[in-house]
Design a protein around this nucleic acid. Structure first.
Lengths: 209, 209
DNA sequence: GTCTATATGGCGATAGAC
DNA sequence: GTCTATCGCCATATAGAC
């Protein structure tokens, strides 16, 4: 992430950034394989060849788009806060509920990335590993070593990631039937109930499985 | 599901079924948009036009493929058993862990379906509604009306679907790091712990949210 | 039932003018 | 920095021969 050269003095709003923004939007709407460089270009008022002036290939454009999205999200939800980890995840879902386009891009691209020779495959493998480690640390800090139902922080972490991804898919398909925030909150209660700090007196009775 | 005419006396192994099977395989590997009729055809030893003899359009082929997968799964996991609902889900995950290709097809196509004007979009909306209703009934039967942490069967149902989808995505990307069966089992323990039948004596102390 | 031939159009990428 | 022109390829779908 330190190697993104923000050319020519660091100004933010140039053509290159515009292309990245519109490409993210378009990949969200149509997937990577379903998106042509021409439609990205057209939305900006450029030709396909104009886009290829900034990125050598379509594949390179995708990789830069993903880097950008990560950079923005980490800036917003990683540095800042002292709140409990699961509260942070509820706030992330509250934020995501306001930007279906970005959620869609992530949902579509991550699933598409499991297909053969997809250019973002390695990227998503690494991203999920980092995410799980991040949640392990956050959950351990909030809830200790033994969680509800005898879960380890590692298990809870993979489940938390799965819940957020899975809920987002259901929400994208059927927003009126699926309440993102309510459900992630319900899952958080599930993890908290019975965790070591919550009910120490009866922990032995329920935790050993 | 009653309207699939299994032409000419019900024999199973004809060209049409062969095309459906190979198409499912190929959509799994490359997505719907990334798959051409020609590669499906070539794998069977047919030309693209030979495939279009059996299905009028590529879109129609996709729809038939999805119908087929549902029919097979319902046959296997819906009719049969008297076991608790969550045990059935663990068995489904055990089965899925042996057939990554099918899991991949479902993961890829469901996420791709949220993109603009995707031919399977309505199909997946309906499928998720049915799945959630199905789990509501199964969870209510197994665990009663009040689950751990005061969750309703409706909330638990959406979470269960999300967990299974989300875990499958992580598993497809990183099978050595993600244990499908262990994790779905961990989630089942989470739902069971504190449910009405499990700890009736202290239910009032934790259930009201 | 499967083929060849073909219409029609979109794709990513390169070369080079201005 | 953006364009026009073009290459080579692949896509879905139709028409019609065998």
């Amino acid at each position: 992430m330190g190697d993104v050269d923000n050319r020519r003095g660091g100004r933010a709003h140039n053509r290159r950034d515009e292309i990245l923004r519109v490409a993210l939007e378009t990949f969200a709407e149509r997937g990577y394989r379903g998106t042509s460089l021409a439609v990205v270009a057209e939305r900006i008022g450029l030709t396909q060849q104009g886009v290829l002036h900034y990125f050598p290939t379509k594949q390179a454009l995708l990789v830069e788009v993903l880097k950008l999205r990560d950079a923005e999200d980490y800036q917003r939800f990683d540095g800042g806060s002292d709140e409990p980890h699961l509260d942070g995840m509820r706030h992330l879902m509250e934020y995501n509920a306001t930007r279906p386009g970005v959620v869609q891009s992530f949902t579509v691209l991550s699933a598409e990335s499991v297909t053969d020779a997809h250019p973002a495959r390695e990227y998503f493998i690494a991203r999920y590993r980092v995410a799980r480690e991040h949640h392990v640390a956050g959950l351990r800090e909030e809830l200790g070593e033994r969680l509800a139902a005898g879960l380890t922080p590692e298990q809870a972490s993979a489940l938390l990631v799965a819940v957020m991804d899975g809920l987002q898919l259901q929400w994208l398909l059927d927003p009126d039937q699926v309440d993102l925030v309510d459900l992630v909150d319900a899952f958080a209660r599930l993890l908290r109930e019975g965790a070591t700090p919550a009910v120490p007196a009866v922990a032995g009775a329920v935790a050993d499985a």
